[in-house]
């Protein structure tokens, strides 16, 4: 009966004993003490840079004018929202994130469902499916840009020549479809991640219930829409949330494949440019804060799921 084992008072399920005695409480604190530095370290290291970003976003701070660092109110945010490039970057970020998450989630779902069947070599196939996730992003982006998309030496146009002969169309993939070039390359990298989480969800599905449904005459499609999908929902939401958080921040692919040109500059690239080229720390920070707010808004739905789980297991 230690106070450590008690439910938080917020949990209505708590059936713990009455208030612990002072001695028990002292014992609990001696158990907590070793953890305190770690927790404080985590909080400091993860929060201070973010808080500093927020502070800088309210300041007029350009490295070219080091003597004019003053409080600027909301002017940086106004600048970001009225800047055509920034608005374009926000739009690109949304399109990029939504397309990549949706496509890679569907591909990952498909792969996970297929891998849930039994066939020889399944473990090996699964490991091979994970490969794209393991390639260093900069290397993957270089690979897509040059070895695959390149109009002269690239694989895609080489294949077109192989199939359609010398008169095959030879599109310049990146300049004709810049955004799609980036999207496909990121989808390639992120599909395995989605697959892994969904597959883990499938593995935790109670199969006896599925068997029972099958015996009762449920078709494969019925089992999928009424049993498998509802079971997978929290897993897919979590995969989408984690994926979205990461893809909103994608910089490596945009920087490597298009260098932010051809209308593919997303917010991270915009921040990078504002910071390194314009040296406008205030405006770059404001854009960063906007990304965070946007991410939180998008993630709220998924977060809610996370917190229902969270509520269930607090003790």
């Amino acid at each position: 009966m230690s106070p450590v084992a008690q439910n938080p008072t917020k949990n209505p399920l708590a059936t713990g004993p009455a208030k612990p005695s002072r001695m028990q409480r002292a014992g609990a604190w001696s158990r907590r003490m070793p953890l305190l530095p770690a927790l404080i370290f985590v909080i400091l290291l993860t929060q201070i840079p973010f808080v500093t970003t927020i502070v800088i976003s309210f300041m007029k701070w350009n490295a070219y004018y080091p003597d004019e660092i003053v409080f600027a109110g909301l002017s940086n945010f106004v600048k970001v929202f009225t800047d055509v490039n920034a608005r374009q970057a926000i739009l690109v970020t949304i399109i990029l994130t939504v397309s990549v998450v949706v496509i890679s989630l569907l591909l990952g779902l498909g792969a996970a469902l297929l891998l849930d069947h039994s066939f020889p070599g399944r473990g090996i196939v699964r490991t091979m499916m994970i490969t794209p996730f393991l390639v260093v992003p900069v290397a993957a982006a270089l690979l897509w840009k040059h070895a695959l998309y390149n109009p002269v030496y690239g694989l895609f146009n080489g294949l077109l020549r192989l199939v359609f002969g010398e008169n095959a169309p030879q599109p310049d993939w990146i300049s004709e479809h810049p955004l799609w070039a980036v999207i496909v390359a990121i989808v390639w990298q992120w599909t395995p991640f989605m697959m892994l989480i969904i597959l883990a969800g499938l593995q935790s599905r109670p199969l006896d219930v599925v068997e029972a449904a099958r015996i009762d005459g449920a078709t494969g499609r019925q089992i999928f829409t009424h049993m498998t999908l509802p079971h997978l929902r929290p897993f897919m939401e979590l995969a989408a949330l984690l994926g979205a958080i990461n893809i909103v921040q994608n910089f490596d692919h945009v920087f490597t494949i298009t260098s932010g040109g051809l209308g593919t500059a997303n917010l991270p690239y915009y921040i990078y440019q504002t910071f390194y080229t314009a040296h406008d720390y205030g405006r770059a920070s404001a854009a960063g804060v906007i990304v965070v707010i946007g991410t939180i808004i998008i993630a709220t739905f998924a977060l809610r799921t996370v917190f229902t789980i969270f509520n269930e297991e607090t003790r």
Partner: peptide
Amino acid sequence: QILVMILVAQMVPLEALVIPLFLQ
């Protein structure tokens, strides 16, 4: 609140943190 703060820290794009961390 601390847990949520830690999760939010994960959502901050690296590019936004570059500025304070670079200066630091």
